[in-house]
Amino acid sequence: MKELLRIEELSVAFPGQQQEAKALDSVSFTVGEGEIVGLVGESGCGKSLTALTVMGLLPEKARATGSVRLEGRELLTLSETELCDVRGSQVSMIFQEPMTALNPLMRVGDQIAEAYRSHHNAFASEARQATLEMMRSVGLSRVEALYDEYPHRLSGGMKQRIVVAMALINRPALLIADEPTTALDVTIQLQILDLLRELQAKFSTSVLLITHNLGIVHKMCSRVIVMYAGYIVEEGATSEVLSKPLHPYTRRLLAAIPTVERQGKALYSIPGIVAPLEERQTGVCPFSQRCDRAFAPCFRGVPPLREVGDRKLRCLLPGGETDELSIIA
C-alpha cells in the first residue's frame, strides 16, 4: 500500500504556568492510500489535536514540532496561504457536532459550493451543478430545494450529510473524521458510517477516523491506533488489536464496550479519567496512574513505543497483556 500521510515525532505543546505542557508527545504513524485508520482513546487523549495539526488549524498558542508529511510534502512548515490551498482540497475534516458546524445564516448549498469554488476557478452555475451532484452522492433527496435551505431546517443526520458533501466535494486524498457520529442517534450513526465507507471506496479516499467507540473501529477500520494522554500506546491491525489487546489501556477500553451478553449488568467503565494536561506527571508511563499492572520500572521513564511482531506497543510488560479476551471478534 502506498503511503499517504506520515507523521513523525509530532509533539504539540501549550504554554503552561511553570513550563510547557505537552498535549501530544512523539506521535508517529502513517496512513496508507485508500486506508481507513482508526484513532481511539478517551476524551482528552489528543485525538482532535492530532487532526488539527494535520489541518494546520491548531490553536494559535499551540507549538508543534516534528514532521507531518502528506504525499511527501511537509505541512508543518507551510505558510498560511499554502495551507489554505491544502485544506479542503487535499485534506478535509468532518467535525463532531453537526448542529453547530454550519453557518446558521448561509444556505446549505452555498456553503458546499463555497468549498468547491475556493479550490476551483468556477462560475457560480458550475459550482452549483457540482454541489447538487455531491448532495445526491451523500444520499440527500430533493436536492434542488434542499440547496436553498438554512441549516436549522435540517435534521442532525442531514446536516452531517451536508458536512460530508462539503468535505468531499474536492475529492481530497485524506479525510479526517473527528467523532463524526458521536452526536447522532444510533440508527443515524450507522447510516452515516455506511455512507462514509461507500464514498471512501468510491473516491478511494484515505480516512483517519477518530472515535472513542471501538465498535465503530471494528466496523470501519483496517488498522487502529490507541492514544492515551498524548501518546500512542498501541497500534496494529484492527482484528488483532481487538481480539488480542497488548496494552492494559486497550484492554480496559475493550472491556468497557457494552455487548449483548453483558446487557442488563452494570456497565464496566474505566475507573478514573485522563488527567488534565497541567496535572500530568512527566517521565513516567502515561498510563501508570490508572494501570493495575504497574510495577516499579513504569515510574522510571516513559516506555518506548516498541515493535511487537507487526504491532506497536508502549508498555514494559514483556508481551503486553496477553490474556485471552475476545469480546468483539
Partner: peptide, 17 residues
C-alpha cells in the same frame, strides 16, 4: 470561536474571507 468558523477554515478559506 464558533464551530462554523472552524468548518469554514477547513474548506481552505483564509482568515479574512
Amino acid at each position: 470561536h464558533m464551530d462554523y468558523v472552524r468548518t469554514a477554515r477547513s474548506k481552505g478559506l483564509s482568515r479574512n474571507t
